[in-house]
Amino acid sequence: MSANISGRRVADIERAPDSSVTTAPVRTASPVVGPPPRRRLRQTLEAYALLTPSLLGFVLFLVAPIIGVVVISFFDWNLMGSPRFVGLANYREMTGDSEVWRSVRNTLYYVALNIPAQTVLALLLALAMNRGLRGGKVLRVLFVLPWMAMPVALGIIWSWAFDPEHGAVNQFLSLLGVSGPEWLSSTTWAMPVLASINVWQYTGYTMLFLLAGLQAIPESLYEAADIDGVTGLQRFFRITLPLLRPSMLFVLVTNVIGSFQMFDTVYVMTQGGPNGSTDTMNFHIYQQAFQLFRTGYASALAMLLFALILLVTAVQFLYFRKRTVYDFS
């Protein structure tokens, strides 16, 4: 155990000079001491026995199709005829395709709109919920309900909400004397609308994870801070936020991966328009694969999206690794 990644990581972090982290209740990794050889063999057999169903699903239904995609990305194939090997042609075409790079920009823009808004809102909600308000439990349930919304069903509701003349949003704004924009026809507003729909759906869900993190912070730390005269915002920035980092990392990593793969809302609401302003990578992949039936090219685009997600996730890990006792591996 001492030689594996997780052990090394915890040790690194414990040595980290960041003082805020050392106040964290550092949980030691499971101290299963390196087993003797015979037990090791038994453990290996047991482990693989336990893993068999999960591995079966993993290899057959995840890894194999992924390998399939990698292979297809080197072919020109419309699903019907026989595939034609084209080497790196799909990847070469990709580098010169301005629509692809527009979709990369759109995706990054969407993530940049969505993630901060959702995370900050969820954090504020979690802080409010953590105060033990009366009726808080009911409110909490209501906030989480949007999470289970079914995209096919909600398309109708959103087009009612954002219709420029009869829509609920603009009718509400006109009560305030503001004349609302033509939301989904505007290259400026279409993407923020899509992002806000996503924020609506997932803020409550994200809040649950952050609330859990907040509740795990020992009250004694705050009491100690009170004695030291640390109050208000200082309390938040010096105790709450640092101790929330593990939850933050989890929430950010999973939400960012989800945001990069956003599809339903674009499909239902805009089909990538107006003027390509909401053509995200996953939608572009869908269009190439299932509308234009350029399966090989779409597979190459999927590789690009994967590389992008991998990069962004790695950056998040590196950032948090320096500051967190998150024992990931």
């Binding site: 398309g155 219709d163 609401m269 805009t270 107006p274």
Partner: peptide, 8 residues
């Protein structure tokens, strides 16, 4: 067109 443009 903002009212009638497809898809939404």
């Amino acid at each position: 067109a903002a009212v009638t443009n497809t898809p939404n």
